[in-house]
Computed example of a mutant assay.
Amino acid sequence: MAEKRNIFLIGPMGAGKSTIGRLLSQKLHMEFFDSDYEIEKRTGADISWVFDVEGEDKFRIREENIIKEITEKQGIVLATGGGSIQSKKTRNRLSARGLVVYLETTIDKQLDRTKKDRNRPLLLTKNPSRLFLENLAKERNPLYTEIADFIIKTNSYSAKIVVNNIINTLFNN
């Protein structure tokens, strides 16, 4: 990685994309973006409210446009929203404009990491049950895998160890 290529983090809610992205960008001296944060910054409202007011379809269009804009930058780390990969355009952009790292985690870890989080629209509008997350995984995991350059497991490791694993994977391939 002599030249700083973009690094895009994908994966389900609770995989650690935002936390790991922030640490990774600091360690690699790259600018960090979080697509959910960008939506909040631009709308002046939290993700849950935007999702609730606009509905999922309009929210996904907004998300797609923000990711399009951010991925045009160079030398960045981007943490994407868990559902952003549902857009074929977004998947194509991520694949074409940087290295895609799929942060994989288990349903148990997702439940544990998101149980107190009130800023996850899909968990607020639906019963955050194991079955709900399993259904999301069936739908989304193949899409994550489809565009991933690398898959990094996050369930049993601290964010710092995951960051080191990502860096080792990037520099040894």
Rank of each mutant, 00 (worst) to 15 (best):
I7M: 00
L111H: 14
S158N: 09
A79N: 11
I61F: 11
A45H: 15
L23I: 09
V101D: 10
F59G: 00
T80R: 02
K68E: 14
K109H: 00
D46P: 15
L123G: 06
R118W: 03
Q74P: 01
K115H: 12
I10C: 06
I39H: 04
I161Q: 15
A148T: 14
N165T: 02
L23G: 01
G81H: 05
A79I: 04
D52Q: 04
I107Y: 00
R5I: 00
I39M: 03
A45E: 15
R97A: 12
Y102P: 05
Q86V: 07
S35L: 08
K116R: 11
V101H: 11
L24G: 02
H29Q: 03
E69H: 14
E40S: 13
W49V: 04
S84D: 07
V163T: 13
T125M: 09
Y157I: 07
S25I: 15
E3Q: 08
T154Q: 07
T154L: 09
I166M: 07
D57G: 06
T80S: 11
G98E: 09
M1K: 07
L23E: 11
E3S: 09
K109V: 01
V50E: 13
R120H: 10
R113G: 03
K73W: 10
R93Y: 14
L124C: 09
P128S: 06
N165M: 10
I107W: 04
K115A: 10
L9S: 06
Y157L: 15
F150D: 00
S158Y: 04
D108M: 08
I166Q: 05
Y144A: 06
E38G: 00
D149S: 08
S25V: 15
L23H: 07
R62W: 10
V50H: 03
T105V: 07
S156L: 13
N141K: 03
P12Y: 08
R60E: 05
M13Y: 01
R91H: 14
L23F: 07
V50D: 09
F32N: 01
T169P: 09
A2N: 12
E69W: 08
M30D: 04
N6M: 05
G82H: 02
